[in-house]
Design a protein around this nucleic acid. Sequence first.
DNA 1: TTGACACATTCCCTTATGGGTATATGTTTG
DNA 2: CAAACATATACCCATAAGGGAATGTGTCAA
Lengths: 123, 123
Amino acid sequence: MARAATTTDAFNAVAEPRRREILDALAGGELAVGDLTELLGLAQPQVSKHLRVLREVGLVEVRDDGRRRLYRVNAAPLRAVHDWVGRYERLWNERFDLVDDVLDELAQAEAQAHTESETGRGD
Amino acid sequence: MARAATTTDAFNAVAEPRRREILDALAGGELAVGDLTELLGLAQPQVSKHLRVLREVGLVEVRDDGRRRLYRVNAAPLRAVHDWVGRYERLWNERFDLVDDVLDELAQAEAQAHTESETGRGD
DNA sequence: TTGACACATTCCCTTATGGGTATATGTTTG
DNA sequence: CAAACATATACCCATAAGGGAATGTGTCAA
């Protein structure tokens, strides 16, 4: 089998940088496709296609406004991502603690070396 | 151009469900490739390949242990994901507030309809 | 040293992707 | 109704992905 479809879930939808840019742009409020096209410097069809993916996973919603279509963010599906990643928050903090510990040990070892022999090797 | 390389960043690495499973499995502590193979019900080469992607984005680290290789999580790269998604936390809360508002309005309208005319139209 | 074991890499194949370009659909204006 | 405008779709293409199977590499045991 090939790659999993990006339209599957928010994880995949958000893995694409352009789509994150679109969401970032929409975070300020509703925007039409043309606005996004200009903001992102992308061709209109590409923007529409990304918007479609975002729509299919529920990350954006549309509203008709004359001949334009106004898109807005629906952040709800991002909760799943946030929740999953959040479970690792403790881990990356622990990791930094470990690094700190190692640094402390090194510092202590060095200090001890200094007190034991004051050979003072330049560096 | 085709799809962006998954080895680019944590966003892409984590977009793949199997890789999330691997990280979840490793969250409990170091595991060898064989352990993961068994836990995930995947073939060994596939596991190794996913581990490689995770390694290249820095999400896991390896340690040699005889003829086995013990992998462990390094959650640090997930901070970027967490931070980005976190910026939308307020938005999805707002959204729920809106839904609540709409529900409240509907409830009020219904209540008013009831008090004004007790015609009781079945549905 | 040979063989079993654990894992990484390579090759093949099918599929989804994302960009580019052209075109279809729907709306407003004259 | 026709022309201009805004978007969505369809089609083509090159590429990366991920699974499967086979093979390479390094380690331990006899």
